[in-house]
C-alpha cells in the first residue's frame, strides 16, 4: 500500500514539474504567436505558405503551428494550434506532422549525445513528416 501512495506521489511530482516546463514554453510561444496573428506579418505568411500548405489540404495559417513545433516542442505547437479555428481533419493532420517532426534543435543535440547520425535523422524526420502529412490529409478527407 505504501508503494502505491509513493507511486501516486512520484507521478504527481513529475506532472507538476512537467507543468512548470510547459509554462516556460507555452507562455512565450503563445504571446509571440498572438502578436504575429494580429500583425501584418500573418497575412504575408499565409500568402507565402498557402501553396505549400495546400499540398497537405491545410489552410495557410497552419504553417504557424508547424513551424512553432519544429523549433519548440509539441506543447508549443498545441498552444499555437488552438488559436486558429482549424477543423478536426486539419488539426489531426497538423498533429501528425508535428508529432513526427518536432523540437528539432533539442532532439538533434540529444541524438548526437547518444551517438546517432543526428543530421541524417533530422532529414529522415522531415521527410517522414511530409509522407505522413500527405497520407493523413488524404485519409482525413475520407474519414473525418
Amino acid at each position: 500500500m505504501n508503494l502505491v501512495i509513493q507511486t501516486i506521489k512520484d507521478g504527481t511530482i513529475k506532472a507538476v514539474k512537467t507543468t512548470l516546463t510547459l509554462m516556460k514554453v507555452v507562455l512565450p510561444v503563445y504571446a509571440f504567436v498572438v502578436i504575429i496573428k494580429y500583425s501584418p506579418v500573418m497575412a504575408f505568411l499565409e500568402r507565402l505558405f498557402e501553396p505549400a500548405m495546400r499540398f497537405f489540404l491545410l489552410p495557410g495559417e497552419a504553417v504557424v503551428p508547424l513551424i512553432t513545433g519544429l523549433f519548440t516542442d509539441e506543447y508549443g505547437a498545441i498552444a499555437t494550434a488552438s488559436q486558429f479555428g482549424f477543423t478536426t481533419a486539419e488539426i489531426t493532420t497538423i498533429a501528425m506532422i508535428g508529432l513526427v517532426c518536432h523540437s528539432l534543435p533539442v532532439e538533434y543535440a540529444l541524438s548526437r549525445q547518444i551517438g546517432l547520425p543526428a543530421g541524417r535523422f533530422v532529414l529522415f524526420r522531415v521527410f517522414g513528416a511530409v509522407i505522413v502529412g500527405l497520407a493523413i490529409s488524404r485519409l482525413g478527407g475520407v474519414f473525418l
Binding site: 488552438s82 478536426t88 481533419a89 488539426i91 498533429a95 501528425m96 508529432l99 482525413g140 473525418l144
Partner: peptide, 11 residues
C-alpha cells in the same frame, strides 16, 4: 492533442 481537437484514433 485530443484536448486540442485532433482525432485520437488517427493520431
Amino acid at each position: 492533442w485530443g484536448t486540442a481537437g485532433a482525432n485520437i484514433l488517427v493520431i
